[in-house]
Design a protein around this nucleic acid. Structure first.
Length: 478
RNA sequence: CCGGGUGUAGCGCAGUUGGUAGCGCGCUUGCUUUGGGAGCAAGAUGCCGGGAGUUCGAGUCUCCCCACUCGGACCA
């Protein structure tokens, strides 16, 4: 079906994807700029999306035995410096507190860019015996990183996230935790956010400062660029040694515990926008949409229409649907365009003609398809349609991912693919840093991950031609 | 951090060789409308991004900041 463009204010994504993205963030009232670069205001509609993401993840964390905690936002410089790789990774983007009131502080405090060091300091105090393990903590908070360039949701100086930090008696247990959390992220993104992911392991170059291994879920945006959706790290016992965290084992000997951390941020919202949005604006996955169904009375001045619409609204709410009604005096066309721009999954219309026939009209945001539903089947049909919208969105995103992932044997092939089409280049890699750097230098791509589901797609490294046994994805990342 | 572009009403913009600020949309009120961004009428809204300078006089010229935006570098 040929879709007419109804929203003049939003730039077409084919014309200028970056501008389209910014337009959607602002016009859908997700975000506003503040007076400080890189610090954004989450408006009610944008924050509500985050609240629904939080709710869904928090449930999953708790089901798997994690507990929420809250640690301070300031880190003394001496504490941050306890682990060498870690401080090297983060120091360049730290913001510092140097005054308390009018007094200069003895030691400056970093505003947390991540909280590994604080958790370690605390864990050293509360872990003594094997009976104290595992410790499965999670924190919802904001962190601060002094980024040079910023974009709504994708790169903030201050952003909201969750950071899980866990300690385990054995490396095997910690690795299992790392994998479990990666799977929770992947499951959440696919089944709630309708975003297909590639699960994989980061190369040494791309892994977290101080980690032994970093796992990631990579997504493909509409412009075929990659977005890292979430990461899960295995630390070994490196931090535990640096922070002197020890416990007495069943063997009555001292051991260092093994650590993990894992996080996702409000960046996921940027991912949702760029995965599902279209030229009419936002398209929200039904399971996190703040409003799942908007009820619109048509010709509401006519007798009985408003009552009929209110009845629909109340029935939907009673059925557990996040529903709202717009009975403002805006025109029908205005309302239709407005809720399309805001990405509301279903629009439920009822007017005099529908009332005569005992039906209402439901329009899907993802496909624009309209169906007439007998009023007696309202709850049942809305539930079905919400699932159908989710499935439709997932299928479209999956198609985008699969159609733009290409197996390449040579660097020229990758170069041609990236220039003409763009997406993920799937190749073999020898594992050498030099080859990774060369790909960046000559093709402009970075390694996204080595997928957990490895396939042998060739014999030799895409870059140096030596024998290679790792399959890896390359792409341009946000 | 480096390069290009842009900051004038809520939003989008115009503003001439320097002479004291305008248009469209939106907003408010009233009436008429209402099945895909309605019509008429009457209103309200400006530290011209900030600071310094040149000038009798600066939205306009000069310098310095700040922010946005597009590239690049950087970026668990």
């Amino acid at each position: 079906m040929a879709k007419e463009k109804k929203v003049e204010q939003i730039t077409d994504m084919e014309v200028d994807f970056a501008q389209w993205y910014t337009d959607v963030c602002k016009k859908a009232e997700l975000i506003d700029y503040s007076s400080i670069k890189g610090m954004f205001i989450y408006r009610p509609y944008g924050y509500a999306i985050w609240e629904n993401i939080q709710k869904g993840l928090d449930e999953r964390f708790k089901e798997t035995g994690h507990e929420n905690v809250y640690l301070p936002m300031l880190i003394p410089e001496s504490l941050l410096q306890r682990e060498k790789d870690h401080v090297e990774g983060f120091a360049p983007e730290c913001a510092w507190v140097t005054y308390g009131g009018s007094d200069k502080l003895e030691e400056r405090y970093c505003i947390r860019p991540t909280s590994e060091t604080l958790f370690c300091e605390h864990y050293a105090n509360v872990i003594h015996s094997w009976r104290d393990l595992p410790k499965l903590y999670n924190q919802w908070c904001s962190v601060l990183r002094w980024e040079k360039t910023s974009r709504p949701f994708l790169r903030h100086r201050e952003f909201l996230w969750q950071e899980g930090h866990t300690m385990h008696a054995t490396a095997e247990e910690a690795i299992a935790e790392t994998e479990q959390m990666l799977n929770i992220y992947a499951d959440f993104m696919e089944n709630v956010l309708a975003m297909p992911v590639v699960k994989g392991k980061k190369t040494d170059k791309e892994k977290f400062s101080g980690a032994e291994a970093t796992y990631t879920v990579e997504c493909m945006m509409h412009d075929r660029k990659a977005l890292q959706g979430g990461t899960s790290h295995f630390f070994g016992d490196g931090f535990a040694k640096a922070f002197d965290i020890t416990f007495t084992g069943k063997d009555n000997k001292l051991h260092n515990p093994f650590q993990t951390s894992w996080g996702v941020s409000t960046r996921l919202i940027g991912g949702i926008i760029m995965t599902h949005g279209d030229n009419n604006g936002l398209v929200l996955p039904p399971r996190i949409a703040p409003v799942q169904a908007i009820v619109i009375p048509v010709a509401q001045h006519k007798e009985g229409v408003l009552d009929a619409a209110t009845d629909l609204l109340n029935r939907l709410k009673a059925a557990g649907v996040r529903a709202k009604m717009d009975d403002s005096d805006q025109s029908m066309g205005w309302k239709a365009a407005e809720y399309e721009m805001k990405g509301v999954p279903l629009r439920v219309e009822i007017g005099p003609k529908d009332m005569e026939k005992g039906q209402c009209c439901i329009c899907r945001r993802d496909s624009g398809e309209k169906v007439f539903v007998p009023l007696t089947e309202l709850e049942e049909q809305v539930a079905k349609l919400l699932d159908a919208v989710h499935d439709g969105m997932y299928a479209r995103a999956k198609k985008n991912l699969e159609e733009h992932t290409k197996t390449c044997q040579t660097m020229d092939e990758v170069k041609e693919f990236m220039q003409n089409e763009g997406g993920f280049a799937r190749t073999m890699w020898c594992g050498d840093l030099e080859c990774e750097l060369k790909m960046k230098e000559e093709v402009g791509v970075t390694s996204r991950c080595m997928p957990l589901h490895q396939e042998k797609v060739g014999e030799t490294c895409v870059c140096c031609g030596k024998k290679a046994d790792k399959m890896i994805y390359w792409g341009v990342a946000y």
